[in-house]
Design a protein around this nucleic acid. Structure first.
Lengths: 341, 341
DNA sequence: ATTGTTGTCGGGAACGATTGCGTGAATATT
DNA sequence: AATATTCACGCAATCGTTCCCGACAACAAT
């Protein structure tokens, strides 16, 4: 720490040995006698010596720290994923630096470059809803920075990826709504160039098709800002409520959209509340307490975080350059929340 | 980064100058001619030179990074506070490393020591519910590590603190419940040695006293694990439901407790749902969608984060040792959520 | 012509740790 | 007894950067 930071030199001076001897004794070099080792380790223990990680980073050209970029930590999916990442990282001796893009491209770039320049050993990233151009990431990746993408991925970068089975999750949820008797199912989703948006939309479409329900573009609402802007959601909500064939169910692609839309309905057309059925992607632990209840498509966020971190560390610690990449697809779970009582 | 990391030496070699000249030219040293400066900066720009922050940290004995320790980022209060901290830190040129204690003392110590050894310039911490002994923190603080406490603080350490007006928040919420006609008000809270626990309990007591309602210890439930363990909450819930004077309102000191208790009631005694009135500390943006609705005591989390970070940076950048410390108390807000419709 | 300024720049130590190489002594080998 | 081997340790370079001391011009002042 800042004050009396005790270094290897202090030990050397106190014991009348050279710094190299101390260094080797501490890390068990074969060339140091057992006796000296004992003296050194005992003294190091006594004065509470810890090697300076900054100096090590400079020398070894690595930091044993890993950068994480998500759009919002205040989203259960991401905070659970981060928990998974942390659990793997800590046992492997890495620490993590978490940053948020707040769904903004410029913040994402800033964060990534900051992390890269601070010599993180690798990067775990889920793209912001504004990120259509990922060339800045590609450059970094080409320069040799190990990157693993999760959740919101891109084909532009050839590396490991960890995603949920968004197609099937969306399909299951839509099918569930259909089986309840709904045919007029709206779909609220986020920015069109996000990988998850496309996959979830396709799952929705496939379920409709299976039950011969025509696909109606009026029912699809893209909220570019992914729920961070309530006005955008209000507008979309008004639009679907104004349709002559007003939907009787909504399928949400994002956690924040469902909450935002419920707020909008409550504000705009509170009497509409009782009839509507809602399903959506969310990892919230409290949606079962909602009124109306929300049927949840739950992603294995913790496991996704674990998998992503495992793949990244594998990449970092690989001796030879890795050229074979895998995309892990984890299953979602449909959690049906019936009305209270 | 890891590969062709371009250093000051490369520039020196390419331009036939010494590293010292480059260094000075880049940071505008007075001793370098304008002409040379131009050449150097132009070339640095061209090959995309960025000073190595690791080397700087080693030299300057500071890292321009700040450590944050909270119990859970998956808690709206903390994630909002972190947003506030980030906003201040980034404009001041610092970056932050976020860690979680998961309400465990050992994790907290591990995180703090890791951060300290990685030479963070300062620490922002909200204590875990298990942390009664803070001597490890005190030691670090005495060694010169700047620390600002927020939310869950301790008297043991003499430094800046940022807290919410927990007493008044609890008082207001309890008074609100009383004014609705409730007299049998239970209080669920977390670990007894947390600062917020005491302050909120006192506020609750004061409101009871004002309205001449006797204080009943049977109504007070300490959940030591602060809501991270559902069984603990189930047990407490069963106990209050089994009382002959069963409470008709509950005041929660923690976000997770209210959700946990609602889950418990739903499971144990679903018919009890309609009558009960609930108020609690929470920064969730969705409690208004709950059934039953929850009246929320909202802390200015973002502002608390900002204030804490400002005080910390002030501490870090102060030339002379700071001996006068302040405790900032920010006001809470009571948000009344009526039943739907 | 000598000394003093000023303007530009380079040499090299330092931050804390690791590590290849060298060295001297003790011991083993022939 | 002479040489080889092993043991235990020190020297110094290295990572990228800053900064204290010079150094050496050109020019002004004496």
């Amino acid at each position: 720490m800042r004050f009396n930071t005790v270094t290897i030199k202090d030990i050397a001076k106190a014991l009348g040995l050279s710094t190299s001897t101390i260094s080797r004794a501490l890390r068990g070099g074969y060339e140091i006698s057992e006796e000296t080792k004992k003296i050194v380790t005992a003294y190091a223990e006594k004065i509470n010596y810890h090697p300076n990680p900054i100096a090590l980073s400079l020398k070894e050209r690595r930091s044993y720290s890993i950068g994480i970029v998500v759009c919002e930590i205040a989203n259960n999916f991401y905070s659970q994923a981060i928990d998974g990442m942390e659990s793997v990282a800590y046992t492997a001796g890495y620490n993590v630096t978490i940053t948020q893009s707040h769904e903004r491209f410029d913040r994402e770039v800033l964060n990534v470059e900051h992390l890269a320049s601070r010599s993180v050993d690798g990067l775990l990233i889920s793209l912001s809803s504004e990120s259509s151009d990922v060339s800045y990431l590609k450059n970094l990746h080409n320069q040799g920075l190990p990157i693993v993408l999760f959740d919101r991925v891109t084909d532009e970068i050839d590396t490991h990826k960890v995603i949920a089975d968004n197609f099937k999750g969306a399909f299951d949820a839509t099918e569930y709504l259909i089986q309840l008797g709904h045919k007029k199912i709206s779909h609220f989703t986020s920015s069109a160039h996000l990988s998850v948006t496309g996959e979830r939309l396709e799952g929705y479409k496939a379920a409709l098709k299976k039950y011969d329900i025509p696909f109606n573009t009026d029912y699809i609402k893209y909220c570019e800002l992914g729920g961070s802007n309530q006005e955008e959601i209000d507008k979309a909500t008004k639009e679907i409520l104004a349709l002559k064939e007003c939907p009787d169910a909504i399928f949400f692609a994002q956690d924040k959209l469902s909450a935002g839309c419920l707020h909008a309905i409550k504000k705009i057309a509170p009497d509409y509340f009782s009839g509507i059925k809602i399903a959506g992607f969310t990892n919230s632990t409290v949606v079962d307490l909602f009124n109306p209840p929300i049927t949840a498509i739950r992603q294995p966020a913790f496991e996704m975080g674990q998998a992503a971190m495992e793949l990244l560390i594998q990449l970092i610690e690989s001796k030879k350059p890795v050229t074979e990449f895998e995309t892990r697809v984890l299953h979602t779970e449909l959690i049906i929340n019936n009305p209270n009582q």
